[in-house]
């Protein structure tokens, strides 16, 4: 019994060490970029999964929190604020926004939360475009000292942090309470679980980590329009990756992110639009026909195999 129980933590530790060693052994831009992207997308999707998967609340405005993190972090960083503080500020801004949006909309049932978050994200996107119409490019000084490795490590940190949060969400007392809320709020309440507080805390953690991930993106990208970080495509990618891998499953987002990026690479010989089209159709098919995603498929195969 003891050996199998120790295997997964040991494997995870090895995995983290390997991931952490990657920049020491290669300076290949394409490999590091690929690693950065996969970690960024794991963090993005897992942060959505915390609320959407573990909590069952469909947030269609995830991009808003990613965008806020990116915007705040990048602006402060370019103004000379130390990067760590800028990242913290972006994270704090996103969590505050989560609190402001979540408090009214999470009290409601039915479609309100989804449409409320969708509306907030679109309004923030438009406002960001209005207030910051100019493209944000790194100044020459920053460009000269631009290295991928620190970006990679930050993305690794964000991915590990979201994975850790998801692990806690699956195991802790809070996680059990949140699962009860996802299944049936009235029964959760009758069991002593304060449904609203659980949903709100999950939402704030989810948006905080989305903000942190956005901050890493803001630090990574050489040049982008601030509005781009608020694009609904970020929300869609988070949903697609989570559903691909498995909603509410700890290993769903990493599996989904790997599959998503490989598929995107494979489709990249075509125009941007074509892969969006294929991903849209794929997403609908998963929601309708394979709601468990890859993780569930894996489990089914394993069950049949033994």
């Amino acid at each position: 019994m003891t050996v199998p129980r120790l295997v997964p933590p040991a494997l995870i530790a090895c995995g983290v060490v390997v991931l952490g060693a990657v920049p020491l052994f290669t300076s290949s831009r394409s490999l590091l970029t690929w690693g950065f992207l996969i970690l960024l997308y794991i963090a993005l999707a897992q942060s959505w999964n915390l609320l959407g998967g573990f909590g069952g609340q469909v947030n269609l405005g995830h991009a808003a929190f990613f965008g806020l993190g990116a915007l705040v972090t990048r602006m402060l960083w370019l103004k000379g604020v130390p990067l760590v503080l800028a990242l913290l500020a972006g994270t704090a801004g996103a969590s505050l926004a989560g609190l402001i949006v979540g408090a009214p909309s999470l009290r409601l049932h039915g479609p309100y939360f989804a449409i409320g978050t969708l509306a907030v994200a679109e309004i923030l996107r438009i406002t960001a475009g209005n207030v910051f119409p100019e493209v944000s490019t790194l100044p020459a000084r920053a460009l000269a000292g631009y290295h991928l490795a620190p970006r990679y490590y930050l993305a690794l940190g964000a991915a590990l942090l979201t994975m850790l949060a998801a692990w806690r969400f699956g195991r802790s007392r809070f996680g059990y309470g949140l699962a009860a809320v996802r299944e049936d709020e009235a029964v959760a309440e009758a069991s002593g679980v304060h449904a609203f507080r659980h949903k709100l805390l999950a939402f704030v953690v989810s948006s905080a980590l989305a903000g942190l991930t956005g901050g890493v993106f803001g630090f990574y990208h050489v040049s982008f329009y601030p509005q781009f970080a608020f694009s609904p495509l970020w929300t869609f990618d988070a949903l697609l990756i989570t559903f691909l891998g498995g909603v509410g499953a700890l290993w769903g987002p990493p599996l989904g992110a790997a599959f998503f990026l490989m598929l995107r690479e494979a489709l990249a010989f075509r125009l941007l639009e074509v892969h969006v089209l294929i991903f849209g159709i794929l997403f609908i098919i998963i929601v309708l026909a394979f709601p468990g995603g890859l993780v569930e498929g894996w489990r089914t195969l394993a069950r049949r195999g033994y």
Binding site: V58, F236, V276, G280, F283, V287
Partner: peptide
């Protein structure tokens, strides 16, 4: 969810 994918 379906509507979201369909919109795209």
């Amino acid at each position: 969810l379906i509507g979201f994918g369909l919109a795209l």
